[in-house]
Deep mutational scan, measured.
Amino acid sequence: HNLTITQGKLFFHYNPKLCLSEIHKMEEVSGTKGRQERNDIALKTNGDQASCENELLKFSYIRTSFDKILLRWEPYWPPDFRDLLGFMLFYKEAPYQNVTEFDGQDACGSNSWTVVDIDPPLRSNDPKSQNHPGWLMRGLKPWTQYAIFVKTLVTFSDERRTYGAKSDIIYVQTDATNPSVPLDPISVSNSSSQIILKWKPPSDPNGNITHYLVFWERQAEDSELFELDYCLKGLKLPSRTWSPPFESEDSQKHNQSEYEDSAGECCSCPKTDSQILKELEESSFRKTFEDYLHNVVFVPRKTSSGTGAEDPRPSRKRRSLGDVGNVTVAVPTVAAFPNTSSTSVPTSPEEHRPFEKVVNKESLVISGLRHFTGYRIELQACNQDTPEERCSVAAYVSARTMPEAKADDIVGPVTHEIFENNVVHLMWQEPKEPNGLIVLYEVSYRRYGDEELHLCVSRKHFALERGCRLRGLSPGNYSVRIRATSLAGNGSWTEPTYFYVTDYLDVPSNIA
């Protein structure tokens, strides 16, 4: 807008934040220059609390790290170098490059900038070799853009010569660093050979998330399962459950009422301010606690030095998902009996873990797994792929695949051998790939016309006998059925096997 004052003059007093240069501009645009008398524009009460600059400061050096910015700028000295009290560095987070010096300023003089007072450097006698002032900004957020400017702080001049310097606002972004852990990993099994893994992005990506790394490792069953005799009275049979499938998407929606109208769909109840505040506090606490764990609990591995020492970490090797089922080394339970199943799973520490690289999504279907087997899954978020990966501390989750139908069934015939004193040795093959492992066998036998009897055969007993022995049988026709019990439950009964026990007292003698 054009402003013209045809008559009258300007009068400025007691404006401590208004620089004289701005008042002189007002004289020019209003056409009143030359009308004012000496005392109409006070030299001592206008701009006496402001830094009124008329020179431009330029930054000469900028260096960044993930949490620091090192700045240096060209030296500046007023005509009387004693008038320079120091520099004021202003900075704040700036997602967009549209910041002005006066953003967030209120009537009390406060604003949204963080201000650092910096002492002037030592003055050199040689004007050509003056030290460049600077400042190291610490405690910054990774991968965050900051708006920065600097200006001088000078003393009051009796001659009211307006001098000083100020830089333009520059924008500097800190470097990326390792992201925080992925949030809320959930693993479920939808079949006997697959596990579905879902997660949420890290709360602090500290860069642009480029991919996720998912490692999985087959877990050995508890050692007590191999040692305890679950045929003993009072000892509860062990059981394991597989990871249940995901709930429906509708039930997972946030901010939804727990109660549904019987007449149909209901609208979600909005969260109160107290609920939102509580969630923010919980989120802040979780982030602080995660940072504490990362800094205190997890110790970084030592990389190899120039002395030739090897990095103890196993090298990563990509495998196809079809090879995942046989990740671990199978060892027989008892070496003397080769027909026992290889369900003991000690994992070799030198073995390469299978892994998958996930790009542009937060889910993965891990296939080719062994049925009813526990897996430990390790999830890392990465925001750099080359020249070397920059990934987060791992988040861990466990899951067990679903049982395989008929995996616990005894394959092959049940054979028998009759000894003296009416002892019958029953023999059968253990299931080759049971659900988890076989903890015991149930032997059901009966003599024709009598009630059915049951015998429990422990895992250890089966390994020693290759089956079991029935003792003290009365003469007669017998039928026997056997079924295995694994961590997933009972298998199917075998087809009945028949044998006849004679009275050993009636056996004919070869003595003449």
Rank of each mutant, 00 (worst) to 15 (best):
P338A: 08
P346I: 15
A399M: 09
G489H: 11
P346A: 05
Y396W: 09
L293R: 15
F226E: 13
P403W: 14
D311L: 08
S223N: 12
H294K: 14
S444D: 14
S315F: 11
S474W: 12
W242S: 10
V414C: 03
K317A: 05
H254P: 05
A484L: 02
F285N: 10
L232M: 12
R301G: 06
S274V: 08
L237H: 02
T307W: 07
T241W: 03
T210P: 14
R313A: 14
G412H: 09
V324A: 12
F215T: 06
I438D: 03
S458C: 12
I366E: 00
V331L: 13
H425D: 06
E217T: 14
H352S: 05
R301A: 07
S392Y: 01
G368Q: 05
Y445F: 03
N422E: 13
S341A: 11
R286K: 11
R483M: 15
W216C: 04
E221V: 04
G207L: 00
E378H: 13
L437N: 05
K406E: 09
K287E: 13
Q380K: 07
E217R: 01
S283R: 13
L437P: 04
S223D: 15
V297C: 03
A399L: 10
R319K: 11
E465L: 11
T307V: 03
S509C: 01
V480P: 01
P387H: 06
V345G: 09
E258N: 08
S486N: 02
S341W: 12
G308D: 09
D409P: 02
K460F: 11
E351S: 14
L225V: 09
E351I: 03
S257C: 07
K233R: 14
G472Y: 14
K432A: 13
E281S: 13
E495P: 04
S268M: 12
A488M: 05
I377G: 07
Y396K: 13
I276Y: 09
G322C: 10
F355E: 10
A336W: 03
F337P: 06
S444F: 09
D250E: 12
K233P: 12
E247P: 09
L280T: 12
V214F: 14
S284C: 06
S251R: 06
V397M: 05
I276L: 04
R218G: 03
G472R: 08
K287P: 10
L237D: 05
P434V: 08
V443N: 00
L232V: 05
T272M: 08
L487C: 05
D323Q: 15
R319G: 11
R301W: 03
C266W: 09
K406I: 11
A263Q: 11
I366S: 00
S251Y: 13
G436W: 02
V439P: 07
S262T: 10
N490Y: 13
L321C: 04
S304I: 04
M402S: 12
P245Q: 13
Q252D: 04
G207M: 09
T328F: 15
A407M: 03
R240V: 08
C382F: 01
E279K: 03
G325S: 10
P349R: 15
Y478E: 00
K317Y: 09
E221M: 13
D204Q: 09
S444N: 00
Y292M: 11
L453E: 06
D273G: 05
Q256C: 02
F499T: 01
L453N: 15
T288L: 12
T502Q: 13
V324L: 09
P270F: 15
F337C: 08
G374W: 03
P349C: 15
G325C: 05
S344P: 11
N255I: 14
V480T: 12
Y212K: 00
S486P: 01
E279L: 12
D291V: 08
E350L: 07
H425T: 09
Y441S: 01
P508S: 05
C231Y: 02
S342W: 01
K287F: 14
Q275N: 13
D291N: 15
M427S: 10
S274Y: 14
T343W: 06
H425V: 15
T347L: 12
E249H: 09
E249Y: 01
A336P: 13
Y498F: 11
E388D: 03
A405K: 13
D204P: 02
E417Y: 03
K460M: 09
A407I: 06
D291K: 03
T303Y: 06
V393Q: 03
S492R: 04
C267G: 09
A394M: 07
S251T: 15
G467P: 01
R318K: 14
E351M: 10
S320Q: 09
F355L: 10
E260R: 14
E279T: 08
H454Q: 09
V327E: 12
D323H: 07
N421C: 07
Y498H: 04
C231E: 01
S274I: 02
E388P: 08
E495L: 05
Y292V: 08
V324M: 05
S342M: 07
L321I: 05
H461Y: 14
C391N: 01
N339L: 08
L437I: 11
L213V: 15
L277A: 07
V480L: 07
K357T: 07
F337Q: 11
R390F: 06
T288K: 10
P238W: 12
F285K: 06
N208Q: 02
I418A: 08
S479I: 05
P300W: 15
E451M: 13
G325N: 14
R471T: 09
V393T: 03
H461S: 10
F337K: 08
H425C: 04
E452L: 09
Y500F: 12
L235E: 09
V424I: 01
S320N: 06
T328L: 15
L232Y: 11
V329T: 05
S458Q: 03
V365I: 15
F226M: 11
Q380R: 04
S248L: 03
E265W: 14
P354T: 09
L369D: 01
S363T: 09
H416Y: 09
